[in-house]
């Protein structure tokens, strides 16, 4: 690293002469060492998945969740420094609640991503703070239905002004990723943490961009793929055992009724079996091609 010893890496809020903020780049390094997190946005929902590396046998199975609920329809998973992630989630919950207090309606995924991006960015501006050591993936499903305002008691007049623009599509599944710099973008599939390269490669192979009803992955398929990708991204040689944690969000007519919930145990087990089967097959295939290659040489 050329930055070492130049002094430009010692403080936030100071650029190096070639226009870099080294503190932010170091924060990204912290993320790159963290365990893998991914998010998949498919046509009828969002899946969040995390690889939870088991650091000790003394930790209770299934406890110490990595994926957090922010509002009914919103979830966040993050890689990097977990305490930073916890604080990030606390802030997200405050933002979601503040939005409800002001507007009497749930915050949209886009608005939450915007608020949280701004919050992360503020931690790159001042001497007194350091940037967040996490990259967070925000998943949400904004209701397409005519939803009541919080505390609303009646349906109001059935005729007259107001209501949604006809013919325009409202709501749906959304996925955003926020980085330590405060940069946030919307994604079809997002991955961060140690296994992000392998995970991204796998995500790119999935059919996620189809917005039509018939094309693209279904939510159940996405759950299985998410499990598989976490298994693929996990490095057996270096890492110890891990637990797979998955949550999902569907629309009001889907399995979670618009809420961010843990994937039910039966479906998770099924997905894990699928993931194990697929990863084992990959290894076999690899070995086969290797053998084939050898023969060719002979």
């Amino acid at each position: 690293m050329t930055s070492i010893g130049t002094g430009y890496d010692l403080a936030n809020s100071i650029f190096s002469p070639d226009g870099r903020n080294f503190q932010v780049e170091y924060a990204v390094k912290a993320v790159e060492n963290g365990s893998t997190s991914i998010g998949i946005r498919c046509k009828d929902g969002v899946v969040l998945a995390a690889e939870k590396v088991i650091t000790s046998k003394l930790l209770k199975q299934g406890a110490n969740k990595r994926i957090a609920t922010v509002d009914r329809h919103l979830g966040i998973v993050y890689s990097g420094m977990i305490p930073d992630g916890r604080h990030f989630v606390d802030r997200a919950r405050d933002e979601a609640r503040g939005w409800r207090d002001n507007y009497k309606t749930p915050i949209s995924t886009k608005d939450l991503a915007g608020r949280m991006g701004g919050y992360m960015q503020a931690y790159t501006l001042y001497q007194s703070v350091r940037p967040f050591g996490i990259t967070a993936i925000i998943g949400g499903y904004d209701s397409e239905l005519e939803t009541p305002v919080d505390g609303e008691v009646g349906s109001g007049p059935s005729v007259g002004a107001g209501g949604k623009v006809e013919g325009k599509k409202h709501g749906g599944p959304f996925l955003y990723m926020v980085e330590p710099s405060g940069l946030y973008w919307g994604y079809y599939g997002a991955a961060t943490g140690k296994g992000r390269q392998a995970a991204k490669a796998e995500l790119e192979k999935l059919d996620l961009s189809g917005d039509g009803e018939s094309t693209g992955l279904t939510l159940e398929e996405a759950v299985k793929e998410a499990a598989r990708i976490i298994y693929v991204a996990h490095d057996d040689n270096k890492d110890r055992e891990f637990e797979l944690e998955m949550t999902w969000i569907s629309g009001a007519d889907g399995p979670t009724k618009g809420r961010h919930l843990e994937v039910p145990e039966t479906l998770r087990k099924e997905a894990e079996k699928y993931a194990e089967r697929m990863t084992a097959k990959d290894v076999e295939d690899e070995e086969e091609t290797k053998e084939g290659g050898d023969k060719m040489e002979e």
Partner: peptide
Amino acid sequence: DRHLTELSIDEAYEDPSS
């Protein structure tokens, strides 16, 4: 009603099991 909505969201933080 609004207060209870907030309360039920808070309750779901700790127990997201479906």
